[in-house]
Structures are given as structure tokens and as C-alpha cells.
Design a protein around this nucleic acid. Structure first.
Lengths: 155, 155
DNA sequence: GCATTCTTGACTTTTCCAGTAGAGATTGTT
DNA sequence: AACAATCTCTACTGGAAAAGTCAAGAATGC
């Protein structure tokens, strides 16, 4: 049930872009994102390039180049990102809406496991679709303002 | 965010055992489970053996041998199964209760992504812990009794 | 004794993940 | 025009994990 490192990096990189987002066309360098988030630069290049082909970010080359969000942070949610980088949000293919895959069970239409997995999928999707980069940036801002100790924050 | 095939097989196998469960010590052969669920027999052997070491099932050798649940179906939930076969239910290690792992982000205690992932984890866990093999068996029974067409059942 | 079934551990094969590398294209600066 | 910084694209690699497969053995019931 894990998110890949790649997917996590994508979200973290986009959070940086969301926090630095401005209506003009200012960009952030890969180098900077890489440093701020401890992400291997070369690997991050790949990921951002991938997000570009998904029209999530756009880039500017050359000396003053870098990346920026292609849409406003309110208009990008986690579901979009994860689906593009990782594929299905659903725990099994047979309950995925966007990446449906037939499963090997004897009768999919009467599968009890499937009904539970569908519930799980819905729960995951509803969170991931509700949370936008704008909300994430806002949460980040709050967490920095009113720091809570590591102990208060249950793991 | 996917469950492995191995994890899915485990649940499907256990569902068979739950449906055939009786208080006496009747067992079900691997062969039968394998056929009823389209699971490669050799692979299933491994999985059941693994579940045996987790004290989820017990076995009987020889001619009238096979597997049975070691506890009543009401006492086995999906979270236990998946955690044993797959590991963490959480999408990222840093929000896992049972399999916590430090992440590479700059400040875990003030990570906005982490707070979303924790919500996701909680949603997943609450479903997986609530659903027992008994409930799964009951759902299966109902689905067979009142068959709904594949079209009514949204994918 | 023999067929049936689980037991155990090793082995294979394939796929994916995470990361690295290099050559090239684009841009701004001087 | 030269150059330095930056993104672009394709390819490669090493390791791990997933999904099976296999073979020899041990228990059991008839």
C-alpha cells in the first residue's frame, strides 16, 4: 500500500513550487528544489520532466531558467499528481476507476473483497482529491508558524 | 498504493477458509483453495505457510490434511493479514505506527505532506481493522444470494 | 506399504525502482 | 560570438522485490 519514493519526491517538489508560486512567471531552479528537499538532483530532473509532460509544471531553460506550476496551486490536487507518477490510487486494479484491470478471482461482480477494496479506494481518493497544493502550502505555513513539538504530533 | 498479488491471494485464501469454517477441526486442502480461487498452487503453499507462522492458520498433514483458521473468523481482520504479508498499511513509512521509518524530508515534525499521509493512513487502517473475515464471508454470502448485475456494481 | 497431503528451503525469472550519466538544446550575459 | 547556467532527452545500471517453480522430505490414514 505504499507510495513510491518517486511519488513522494514529486509531491515534495511541487510543494516547493506551490509555496514560491507567483502570478508572474518566476521560476525555481532544480538545484534549489533539490537542496531544500534533499532530493537527488539528477533524479529530480526526471521527475519534473515527467510532470511537465503531464502539464502540471512548465519550464524555462537557460541561465535564469527553472520550473513553475502551470496552474494555480488551488487547481492541482494530490490525486492528479500521484495518478500521473504512480498509476492507480486503488489498492487493487479491479476497483480502479482510471486504471481498471480485470482480476483473477472467479467472479468479480460478486467478490466480497472487491467491495472492501472499493471502500478503501474511495477513502483514499476522497482525501487525495480534496487536498490541493494550495492547501498543502497553507498547512506548511501554519506548521512553521505554530511549531508543535515532535511529541505532540502522534506518529 | 497497491496491494501485492501475494497479499490479495492471502485474503482470498483466508476467505475460503472463513466460509468453510466449522468449530470442529475440519480442514480444506490447498488444492481446493487453489482451484476455487485461481491461485497457483505452489505459490499458495508458500503463502499459507507464511500465515501459519503468523498463527493465522493451522494445518494438518497427510491424506485428510489441509488448512483451517486458527481463530474464529470474527477475530481475524484484514489489517492483521495485510500487515503480516505486506508490511505497513501507511502510504509512507514516516506515518506508519507498526513499521515507522524516518523519512528524508528536512523537518518531519513540521511536514505538511506527512499530515495528509497520516489522514490517509488512518482512513485505510480504520477500514482494514473493522473488516473481519467473518464480515467478508457474510458479504460474500449476500452477494451470492442477491446477485446484482455487473452494471449495477460500479467500478 | 503406499498414496496423499503438507513442509522446507532453495532456486529462477521477471519486473520495477532509484539513481546515474552524457550529450545536446536553449537562454541570458558580457 | 563566446560562454556558462540551466533544462532535455535517452539510455543505462545495480539491486531489490515480486511472483512463481522445484525437489526432496515428513506426517498421516487406509
Amino acid at each position: 500500500m505504499k507510495l513510491s519514493v518517486r511519488g513522494e519526491y514529486a509531491i515534495r517538489a511541487l510543494l516547493v513550487l506551490a509555496r514560491d508560486y507567483q502570478e508572474d512567471d518566476s521560476v525555481v531552479r532544480i538545484q534549489e528544489i533539490s537542496e531544500r528537499q534533499n532530493i537527488p538532483k539528477r533524479f529530480l530532473e526526471q521527475i519534473l520532466n515527467d510532470l511537465k509532460s503531464a502539464h502540471v509544471v512548465e519550464s524555462k531553460r537557460g541561465v535564469a531558467g527553472g520550473y513553475r506550476l502551470r496552474r494555480r496551486p488551488e487547481q492541482i490536487n494530490l490525486a492528479q499528481i500521484v495518478r500521473h507518477i504512480e498509476g492507480p490510487l486503488a489498492p487493487v486494479g479491479c476497483v480502479s476507476e482510471k486504471f481498471y484491470e480485470k482480476c483473477s478471482c472467479p467472479d468479480e461482480s460478486r467478490c466480497a473483497i472487491r467491495s472492501v477494496m472499493k471502500e478503501t479506494r474511495d477513502a483514499i481518493v476522497s482525501i487525495m482529491e480534496r487536498v490541493t497544493l494550495a492547501e498543502l502550502a497553507e498547512r506548511a505555513r501554519k506548521l512553521e508558524q505554530e511549531p508543535m513539538s515532535a511529541l505532540d504530533f502522534n506518529i
